[in-house]
């Protein structure tokens, strides 16, 4: 019988896909995202990782501050490294940090939101006070403190982003759980003898998962931007070549003053494109999950 259920699930997926396909913004976002994912995955084929090492770069005889016309495709930086290699390998770090931090955000936010909304009472009150506390503490000072205490590596960056950005997800999920909990089918499940776990798994989760997915897609760009901000402020992982770090180094070493546009522009545009792509996809998914948003179409 599960095969019937599977069939219907597949039908639902293909219906959502059909709706998604008919949305131009969603398809543009998806196309852009796929390009960057392909770049990140194919990084070893596109650029030699040794190009990130200034010693290797010097040994190769790369020019310093070489514009793209001298050193195609994207020129070199102040210590002769290839900007193209930084861009390609940086996309890996940026996408990974963005996705991993989002997973953490959504995980914490969903668990807190579902437990608070479903259990209610004192548990709800305590969790919501904690959520509000996290919501009001200024993000940057906390991130700076955490980064300096925990040390500067990729995992800590992910942790810092996750720990500071889950509260809004938690509140959103909790609100939705409160509505779903009131629905009669939850009463029906209870009168069939269902416990809390069954109700959450079979009735609450399926009815909030659309919201969680849409929220997740919209959280990715925020995570990427946060990573960029932290790296730009010098709090990023010194060994990981992320786009944010490229921007920081370009800024610190006077790329703007030298008019070395090739140094900072690729990373900046890359961030812009990925953030935009995720936002477009997230908006489209949100519209599919909640048709009232797309009434204007």
């Amino acid at each position: 019988m599960t095969s019937i259920a599977m069939q219907r699930r597949r039908a639902t997926v293909s219906r959502v896909w059909a709706q998604f396909r008919s949305s131009r913004q969603g398809m543009i976002g998806l196309a852009v995202l796929l390009v960057f994912v392909a770049v990140a995955l194919a990084a070893p084929l596109l650029a030699d990782v040794r190009e990130l090492n200034p010693v290797y770069a010097r040994a190769q005889g790369n020019p310093q501050w070489g514009p793209p016309s001298v050193f195609p495709p994207l020129g070199t930086d102040y210590i002769r490294r290839s900007v193209w290699a930084q861009f390609v390998w940086g996309s890996r770090v940026s996408l990974f940090v963005g996705l991993a931090a989002t997973v953490l955000t959504i995980l914490i936010g969903s668990v807190v939101g579902i437990v608070a909304g479903f259990v209610g009472g004192k548990v709800d009150a305590v969790l919501m006070r904690v959520t509000e506390w996290f919501l009001v503490i200024p993000f940057l000072p906390l991130a700076i403190v955490l980064a300096s205490v925990l040390g500067r590596n990729v995992w800590n960056i992910i942790f810092v982003i996750g720990i500071t950005s889950w509260p809004s997800t938690a509140r959103l999920v909790r609100a939705q759980v409160l509505t779903v909990k009131q629905r009669l089918f939850v009463d029906r499940a209870r009168s069939l003898g269902a416990g809390g776990g069954h109700i959450v798994a079979h009735h609450i989760l399926p009815n909030v998962s659309g919201l969680i997915l849409a929220n997740a897609t919209l959280a990715v760009p925020i995570s990427i931007l946060t990573e960029t901000t932290l790296s730009f402020l010098g709090l990023g992982d010194p060994t990981a070549a992320s786009w944010g770090k490229t921007l920081e180094e370009a800024f610190v070493n006077g790329a703007m003053a030298r008019n070395a546009w090739w140094y900072f522009l690729p990373a900046g545009l890359g961030i812009l494109a990925v953030v935009l792509a995720f936002t477009l996809i997230g908006r489209t998914l949100e519209e599919i999950a909640n048709p009232r948003l797309s009434r204007s179409r």
């Binding site: 019988m1 259920a5 089918f185 009463d187 029906r188 499940a189 079979h202 399926p206």
Partner: peptide, 14 residues
């Protein structure tokens, strides 16, 4: 009283 995301089979079998 019926979860819109469940099939009738799942509802009755629940």
């Amino acid at each position: 009283a019926l979860n819109p995301r469940q099939t009738i089979y799942e509802i009755v079998a629940e």
